[in-house]
């Protein structure tokens, strides 16, 4: 954490401090709509960071992270709806079960040498099977969805995540900040370096005494646990859960676009990525509406084109390019 701060020069530190303060005081000035967009951005910072640990650092490409969001969301929502168990408690089994799924995927993949694209396929398969499974679990509403009821009397029970927009904004903000700090901490830790070694060359990593299986398992466990917490947030923020929505492949992709555009394997990449992409999506919705284009998919096509342009222009991500252009990185002595 301290080294994250120290690795930046004065300009970088000022920029980060300013961004932090602006976000901290945003609710004072922001409209409800703007606040909802910012909340969404911070949510994507959080889950993007969780994915980044596994891909950007440990080099394991998961294309099924919606699985952990879905499990976290469904389990915590079901515990609340059926048993009145609040999310602060419900987050524990949510994380445990998501981590167990992560462990199963990791164990299968890493123990049996399912690597590269095949590992990614495995992550997709788990998410898809789980989606189909949830379609048929009556307890959580099946394909018809699970809803957290709106109760007037509970409004303001922030301890049950029944809060206002401002409350959810700060919750997302806190989660995003913690995710950034955790990434910074891990990136500079022994485990973080083991991940980098594995990402770069597994054979060489092994020759340097790294227990590759263990290190990869830690990556998938940390990443899936973190993502599940994001799912709990999602459930209590949106209050409605559908398998086709939560576990869908497109959700997994959506979640990883931020870090990819911002720069994988960096602490601030997922942050910048979310701040670029989420508003872009909102702007595209507004523009296509204004222009009277309501052809389905028009937004997706524009979005795709802009995405391609960004990736073409800055293939290693916006953050490495930006921090270089603006001179944020400290020259190491």
């Amino acid at each position: 954490m301290i080294s994250l701060w120290r690795d930046m020069n004065g300009r970088g530190q000022v920029a980060v401090a300013l961004a932090f303060l602006v976000l901290l005081f945003a609710p004072v000035a922001a409209t409800r709509y703007l606040l909802s967009v910012l909340t969404l951005i911070l949510y994507f910072v959080y889950v993007g960071q969780a994915w980044n640990l596994m891909m950007g650092y440990a080099g394991q490409l998961s294309l099924g992270h919606a699985l952990y969001v879905g499990l976290g969301g469904y389990i915590s929502a079901a515990l609340w709806v059926h048993f009145g168990i609040g999310p602060w408690l419900g987050v524990v089994p949510s994380v445990a079960i998501a981590a167990a799924f992560g462990a199963a995927i990791g164990w299968l993949g890493f123990r049996f040498g399912i690597e590269g694209v095949y590992f990614s396929l495995l992550t997709i398969a788990f998410a898809e099977f789980t989606r189909i499974g949830f379609d048929h679990i009556g307890f959580v509403g099946g394909a018809g969805g699970l809803f957290i009821p709106y109760e007037e009397s509970r409004l303001g029970e922030w301890w049950n995540l029944r809060g206002s927009q401002v409350f959810f904004y700060y919750l997302a903000f806190g989660m995003a900040v913690l995710a950034v700090l955790l990434t910074a901490l891990l990136a500079r830790s022994r485990l973080g370096y083991q991940w980098l070694a594995i990402r770069e060359d597994e054979t060489a990593a092994r020759a340097l005494g790294i227990d590759v299986f263990r290190a990869k398992m830690k990556a998938v466990l940390i990443s899936s646990s973190m993502t599940a917490v994001g799912g709990v947030f999602y459930a209590f923020y949106y209050n409605s859960l559908f398998p086709a929505q939560l576990f869908d492949m497109s959700r997994s992709i959506e979640l990883i676009l931020g870090p990819i555009v911002g720069g994988t394997g960096t602490v601030f990449g997922p942050v910048i990525g979310a701040f670029v992409l989420t508003p872009l999506g909102e702007i595209l919705i507004a523009v296509t509406e204004k222009a009277g284009i309501n052809a389905p998919g028009a937004k997706a096509i524009f979005f795709g084109l802009i995405l391609m342009a960004i990736i073409y222009l800055v293939p290693t991500g916006v953050w490495p390019w930006l921090s270089q252009r603006l001179g944020f990185a400290r020259r190491r002595s």
Partner: peptide, 22 residues
């Protein structure tokens, strides 16, 4: 290989394998 290395045997590769991006 990792267990052997932890016991105190380190090796280099004939065809070098640096971690290129680091």
């Amino acid at each position: 290989p990792d267990a052997v290395c932890r016991l105190g045997v380190a090796r280099t590769f004939q065809i070098v394998r640096p971690f290129p991006a680091l």
